[in-house]
Nucleic acid binder design. Sequence first.
RNA 1: GGCCCCUUCGUCUAGUGGUCCAGGACGUCGGCCUCUCACGCCGAAAACACGGGUUCGAGUCCCGUAGGGGUCACCA
Length: 475
Amino acid sequence: MPEVRTRFAPSPTGHLHVGGARTALFNYLFARHHGGSFVLRIEDTDRERSSDESVQAIMSGLDWLGVVADEGPYYQSKRAELYDKAVAELLGGGHAYWCVCSQEKLAATREAAQASGKKAMYDRSCRGAGHEPALDGPAVLRLASPESGETTIDDLVRGPVTFDNSELDDLVLLRSDGSPTFHLVVVVDDLDMGITHVLRGEDHLTNTPRQAQIFRSLGQEPPRYGHLPLIVGADRSRLSKRHGATSLDAYREMGILPGAMANYLARLGWSHGDQEIFSRAELSGLFDVEGVGKAAAAFDLEKLRWVNQQHIKATPPAELAAAVLPFLGAGEADDSSRLELVVELLAERAVTLVGLAEGAHCFLSDDLSWDRKAVARFLDEEGLARLAALAQQLELLADWDESNVEAAFAAALVDLDVKLGKLAQPARVALTGSKASPGIYEVCVVLGRERTLARLQRVAGELASGDLPLAAPAG
RNA sequence: GGCCCCUUCGUCUAGUGGUCCAGGACGUCGGCCUCUCACGCCGAAAACACGGGUUCGAGUCCCGUAGGGGUCACCA
């Protein structure tokens, strides 16, 4: 049994799309599961559209997702000799020929065919004509593919899929400028790199028999293919911008943990019984083509958010603190042990890192604004009077810990003769600026004695003078 | 339009002929918990596209129909 070798071969013409990211992930996981290798290859044969920025964007996206290549990246633009060799072999074996038909003529033929409702295929008029680019001017090289019979792909996820060879025309291998096309390079590279399994989007399914023919013309057998169901939007058409964010970066920016993204993407088209939450190690261990489904899957942001929440809860505070760092304001991350405390307190109720950072703000900075409506509702005269009573009790505390803070609240409640809610809400609004937060005792403890007392004082003072910064709550 | 693929709750899916009057999860709705918001817990509504076969028995196998998607470049 030869080593399993998979690859991800993006064309660098933009950002890393969630569909591409999932394809990469599946190939990576498949290789991991089988103890094989995962190769990264940049398909930059379209020199017009390829860019270095895109290569960087794709690599950083994969890096973030945790999809690491065992080999590569290889660049097709740097492997020309290999393609030349294959062309010579194809030409020598009579499996390819030069075609001098102009693009205009081809386009016209195509349109005519389409208009009359017939199939738009190249008519093979140059086949057997013996054209030579040196003699006859600009020419493309075409594969002389079989005109009859059929080609069957034994797909890893769909089983055997058969195409009639008469449906497949002679595809272009070399452009008239001499550069190789996708179909040629993909075959030559998969061969050269010893790729054994190709997992790719279902949109490639109809390319597969043609590529298989190139392999056979080269005297080789194609690798095993598995065509993955497409990721679609809510309207079930291929995922695109109008369905929401399609770039992996967008999810990073909205505070999705990479492990959660990988988990969610894996579950889009793959499953393992009823399990929803997977660690990286579990994915690597459990992923296989048997669990891959056939039907297109709709991308559901709400579920991604839930998965993210589960991962946030399961992430150790130190790690979570590091992950939230990019979302914090200047100066908010200066005290890392304090940050860990805050993060631990908020992890239970955070859905995204962005939300976590927002919740952490009132603990890490004094530059905050108070929710206008909450202030109006809870910090009226009565509320402020209760807070004064609370402050009195808190001042007396020798040790600032949760049970003492709770006792101080209890003492104030007795003085005031009210229920906890009547005191906790004003305190919450005063201390955090919002009417939603962790338990009020924990808030006091994590805020610390100095800050708690100072903030109570500040709110009372600035509210009276009208200096308290007010704003509608974010989000 | 030709070819190819697909079809279980709104969504992601379990299900490989009988244990399925179809299970889990997100979401939704109701309730409990409660200092707020979450978390958690309990409960509810919600699906085998349709029609024929095969079989003692079909969500599971076969054939059709319908619907959806993909693809038909000197893009990948």
